[in-house]
C-alpha cells in the first residue's frame, strides 16, 4: 500500500488532463490564428466526455473530493434562494463584526418559520475573496450561535448548511478565540432546545464544519465530503508528501457512503450523475424532500426526548475496545 504505483483511477485522470490540455491548446491556436480546428477538436471532446463518464460512474474518494470542491456546485445562497421564502439575513455577532463567511437568516421553509445558518462559500474568485472562501472567524460561529438562540427562543427549527474547507487559520482568528467559539457551538448545539437538521452540501472541513453540524438529523449529499483533516494535510503529516492526497482521501473514509456506514451521517442524499452542479434543480428537489420529511418527523417529538436522543446519538459515536465490561457505578 505504501508503494507509489499510479492507480487505474489516477491513470484516467492523467488521460483526461492531457486531453483537456490538448483541447485548450487547439482552441487557443484557433483563436490566435483564426484557423478552424473544430474537426480536430470534436473527437477529443468526445473522448474527454467518455473519460468523465468512466470516472464518475464509480468515482474514487479522491474524485469525490474534487466534486465536493467543484466551483460550480450549488452554494448556500442557491439552496436558500430555491428552498426558502421570506429570507431575512441577520448580521453580526454583537461582539466584534459581521463575518461574511458564515450566513445566518430567518426564513420560511414550506411556509414554516425556520432559522438558517451556513457556510457562505462563493462561486468565483471575487465572491470567494469577499466571503473568505467560506472559512469563518470566531465571530462567524458566534453569529451562528446567536441565530440558533433565536430559533430556540421561538422553538423554530434550525437548518444548517455545511460547506467549508475549515475554520480560518489566521492569527486574528486565534486571538479572538477560534477554539472557544467552535467548542461553545458544539456544546450548545448538543443541547439546543429546538430541532436541528444539518445538510452537508460540499466540504465538511473538520472542526470548522462541526461547529455548525451537531444536530438531530445529519444529511449529506452523495458527493460531499466530511473529514477531520484535508487529504493534503493528512498526507503531508503522515507521509511528508502532500501529493499523496489521493491515498489519504481513501484512507480517511470521508465520503457520504463511508460516513453513513460509520453512523456519523443519518442519510445520504443522492446526486445527479457527475455531481450536483450537473442538475442543480434535481439536487434542490432532493434536499427539499429530505428536509421536509425530517422536519416533519422532528416537530412532533417532545423536546426532552429529542435532547436525550441527540445526546445518545453522539454519545455512541466511535469505536472502542473494552477489556472487561464491569460497571463502576
Amino acid at each position: 500500500m505504501t508503494e507509489r504505483r499510479p492507480s487505474p483511477a489516477a491513470d484516467l485522470d492523467r488521460q483526461l488532463a492531457d486531453l483537456e490540455q490538448e483541447i485548450d491548446r487547439l482552441r487557443r491556436r484557433s483563436r490566435e490564428h483564426s484557423v478552424p480546428v473544430d474537426a480536430e477538436i470534436a473527437p477529443l471532446v468526445e473522448r474527454a466526455e467518455q473519460l468523465r463518464v468512466q470516472i464518475y460512474t464509480h468515482p474514487s474518494p479522491w474524485h469525490i473530493v474534487q466534486l465536493a470542491r467543484q466551483s460550480q456546485r450549488p452554494r448556500l445562497l442557491d439552496f436558500l434562494g430555491t428552498l426558502c421564502s421570506d429570507v431575512m439575513e441577520l448580521h453580526g455577532d454583537r461582539l466584534y463584526r459581521d463575518d461574511p463567511a458564515l450566513l445566518a437568516a430567518l426564513a420560511r421553509f414550506n411556509g414554516q418559520p425556520v432559522v438558517v445558518i451556513g457556510h457562505n462559500k462563493g462561486k468565483d474568485t471575487k465572491e470567494n475573496i469577499a466571503r473568505n472562501f467560506g472559512m469563518p472567524y470566531p465571530e462567524g460561529y458566534r453569529k451562528a450561535l446567536r441565530a440558533m438562540r433565536l430559533a430556540e427562543k421561538f422553538r423554530y427549527p434550525v437548518i444548517s448548511f455545511v460547506d467549508t474547507p475549515g475554520a480560518y487559520p489566521g492569527d486574528e482568528a486565534e486571538e479572538r478565540g477560534q477554539a472557544e467559539a467552535i467548542a461553545r457551538n458544539i456544546q450548545e448545539m448538543s443541547r439546543l432546545r429546538t430541532p436541528v437538521v444539518v445538510v452537508i452540501t460540499g466540504e465538511g472541513g473538520s472542526g470548522g464544519a462541526l461547529a455548525i453540524a451537531v444536530g438531530d438529523a445529519v444529511l449529506m449529499l452523495q458527493y460531499a465530503v466530511y473529514t477531520v483533516i484535508s487529504p493534503e494535510g493528512c498526507a503531508a503529516i503522515l507521509w511528508h508528501d502532500a501529493s499523496r492526497a489521493r491515498d489519504a482521501a481513501a484512507a480517511l473514509k470521508l465520503t457520504a457512503e463511508d460516513l453513513h456506514a460509520l453512523g456519523v451521517v443519518d442519510e445520504v442524499l443522492p446526486e445527479p450523475f457527475g455531481g450536483a452542479h450537473r442538475d442543480p434543480d434535481a439536487t434542490f428537489a432532493t434536499v427539499r424532500e429530505a428536509l421536509q420529511r425530517h422536519l416533519q418527523a422532528l416537530r412532533t417529538v417532545p423536546i426532552e426526548v429529542l435532547l436525550d436522543r441527540r445526546y445518545e446519538k453522539y454519545r455512541r459515536m466511535g469505536r472502542i475496545l473494552e477489556e472487561s465490561t464491569q460497571s463502576i457505578e
Binding site: 458544539i186 456544546q187 448538543s190 473538520s206 462541526l210 477531520v228 503529516i237 470521508l254 453522539y314 466511535g318
Partner: peptide, 22 residues
C-alpha cells in the same frame, strides 16, 4: 484529533462537549 480514526475522532469533540454540557 487523531486523524487515523477519521471523522470518528472529530465526533469525539461532539461527544465530550455534550457530556460537559450535561
Amino acid at each position: 484529533a487523531r486523524m487515523q480514526e477519521g471523522v470518528l475522532s472529530l465526533m469525539q469533540l461532539a461527544k465530550t462537549s455534550a457530556a460537559i454540557g450535561r
